[in-house]
Design a protein around this nucleic acid. Structure first.
Lengths: 279, 279
DNA sequence: TTTCGAAATTAACTTTGGTCAAGAAAGCGG
DNA sequence: CCGCTTTCTTGACCAAAGTTAATTTCGAAA
């Protein structure tokens, strides 16, 4: 383990360089594959051969930087490429009756609209949370890979199934938990996911999330979200200040959020299909 | 259009034969492919070639009938086959702290645990709602198909993406609606999905669902679900009696549930990837 | 037909969360 | 530094939903 600096799209006075724990394996991956090195990291990346990693990296035909709030994908519009999130965050949002709802959050390394390859039109928007860097893969290219690379295709499929597993967990937690535990669960999930791609630190993590964003993800109001966050703070469970999440006792924190990471299919959880690791 | 009788797994005094609207196309499909004829029906079934339909039908190595409440898949246990739901209903359930939560419902024609092919272990149970008939496809067979049938593989992928789209909609509706509209939405969805596979009738549909099941799907209590259903009945929007759903004014009903079926990617909605229809 | 158990129903009371209204604090651009 | 905007915070009040506890209805099986 070694330390490495990273940048998230913060809106603070000056961009604070944070220490993120990042193994040397991970560092090598990121220098070898600067655009797609985080894809499936912490999950089945080890199942990708070097050739497959090269194929994926070279499939990105265009890299673009966006400011916060840019709509990457519009609900109902036809897509001819899919988008790899290289840096920054994105939300899956749906605006109805003048109110915004968030049904998912994506972190670096996520192939955010890979499902648009098969669905062509999405039922939601994808919006950058802070500044973000993305890479595009044309659907024609994915089409070719479907025909010539069955193993890589299976990994793509797997990655969309991870999203589905996360959706199920969100559904579960909305059914099961009150606002206080719901945020705790959400923050625990984001922390875990950032950790898998080397973007968390030992006391927490940083995002450009506002309390309103959290409210829209938890199906509550910004006002009630504020009550929940203050309660978490009052109990000494976690601090959320302007997107900066700080936790002292992680076990305790995850207990408050009723968080069990197996649904994220991390590679340490021995929960993953062995067949996918072999060609 | 012609009428055909069908059976759902009802626990009523005698199995009531209901009239279901079912096109002659659909009838032919069901007689030609009695086990898998409902797979992707109303969606991209027309994109499957006869050869592909044969391949799928012949991939079912075993057909089994189960009683109500049988656990088809157990959370965390390794799966070596995937399950086609031929007749009846199944719920995706999670039991935690002694309470049951439902994160999905499956209808005939659904390849209910296709995602287990890639994930190997699921994060939830699959339980039959009433009596059900299922068919098994070994994962070794799916593996072969991945290598030899890229187009069929893409359709399998598509079918798991439909599940994900439904999960997103459930998340959205849990965030957005109060219990009263939530049930209405849920019932509208089930109706629509049954209609796509020829198992609904013009005034509604029949299922073995109880009010407790609905409550577990809507993240509320059976008592509150009862209040919501009574309200729907009082307003003349819909009647739910022992799994029997009756609606007089469908447009009005769907409006109360804030229901828009585009997320179900039905073939009439011109919402589906044209690329998938061609090889 | 009777009996039993599951499912549905209702009421009284408590907790959680939504709404409205008003400020305070922090970040941003000049 | 100042003014402007966004984000956060708090209080008072009301509606939605959970809890507990009975009671009724219905369907299945004897």
């Amino acid at each position: 383990m070694t330390k490495v600096n990273f940048e998230t799209g913060l809106n603070g006075p000056e961009p604070i360089a944070l220490e993120a724990t990042c193994s040397s394996d991970m560092q090598k991956e990121l220098s070898d594959y600067p655009l797609t090195g985080r894809f499936l990291m912490g999950r089945l990346r080890h199942a990708m051969g070097d050739r497959e990693k090269e194929i994926l990296e070279s499939s990105i035909t265009e890299v673009v930087d966006f400011d916060k709030g840019h709509r990457l994908v519009t609900r109902g519009e036809k897509c001819n490429h899919s988008t790899m999130l290289i840096e920054g965050f994105a939300l899956r949002t749906i605006v109805e009756n003048g109110r915004r709802y968030v049904v998912g959050i994506q972190v670096p390394g996520d192939f955010v609209d890979l499902h648009a390859f098969a669905l062509k039109r999405l039922d939601h928007d994808l919006v950058t949370l802070g500044p973000a860097k993305v890479g595009y893969v044309p659907h024609s290219r994915l089409q070719d890979l479907m025909n010539s690379e069955p193993h890589l295709s299976r990994l793509f499929w797997f990655s969309t199934l991870l999203d589905a597993a996360i959706h199920r967990q969100w559904t579960l937690k909305l059914e099961q938990l009150k606002a206080y535990r719901r945020v705790a669960h959400l923050l625990a999930e984001i922390w875990y996911r950032l950790e898998m791609v080397g973007l968390a630190h030992s006391d927490g993590f940083r995002t450009p999330l506002t309390q309103t964003d959290l409210a829209d993800m938890c199906g509550t109001t910004a006002i009630h979200m504020n009550r929940a966050l203050r309660a978490l703070s009052r109990e000494g469970v976690a601090e959320f200040r302007r997107g900066n999440v700080t936790v002292t006792d992680r076990k305790n924190f995850e207990k408050h959020g009723d968080f069990n990471p197996t649904y994220l299919y991390g590679q340490g959880d021995l929960y993953i299909g062995a067949e996918l690791t072999r060609d």
